[in-house]
Amino acid sequence: MGETRKIALTVNGKRYAEEVEVRMHLGDFLRQQLGLTGTHLGCEHGVCGACTVLVDGVSARSCLMLAVQADGRELLTVEGIAPNEEELHPLQEAFRDNHGLQCGFCTPGMLTTLIEFLGDNPDPTEREVREAISGNLCRCTGYQGIVAAALDAAQRLKALKQA
């Protein structure tokens, strides 16, 4: 093992104190060291978007950050999106109901990207949704189901807010 550093961070509300190899990127750290394999690694050079996580509420590609750079940060990964083990987040429900996923490889990155996006833009147009997910590659759905799911989720989240 090469040079290491101690870091402390919060992932999905849980505190971790870990010793990490300084050259390890955040995606590998989440998957290999914390066992959070929901975050997927596709290209590992910042093109596919599958490894997107939220760092202090803003999206980042976890393959383009070192694990040591997450020291003191609060992360959200796909495992932390659902409110509990029984229920899904409205965005996840919308993905299920609109055929927003087939193989599921891009889904963690799509969900984290859209959580940030729908927070910034609660009532988006189709074009805005397509632009928001332009940094996330999907090879199954042709994007149609994902765009429909995002628009549906916006309505569900709005209804929940008004309720």
């Binding site: 090469g2 040079e3 050259r23 390890m24 040591v68």
Partner: peptide, 11 residues
């Protein structure tokens, strides 16, 4: 794909 080994500095 993994970064090569290096020393890390945080000034």
């Amino acid at each position: 794909m993994k970064p090569p080994p290096f020393s890390y500095h945080l000034p």
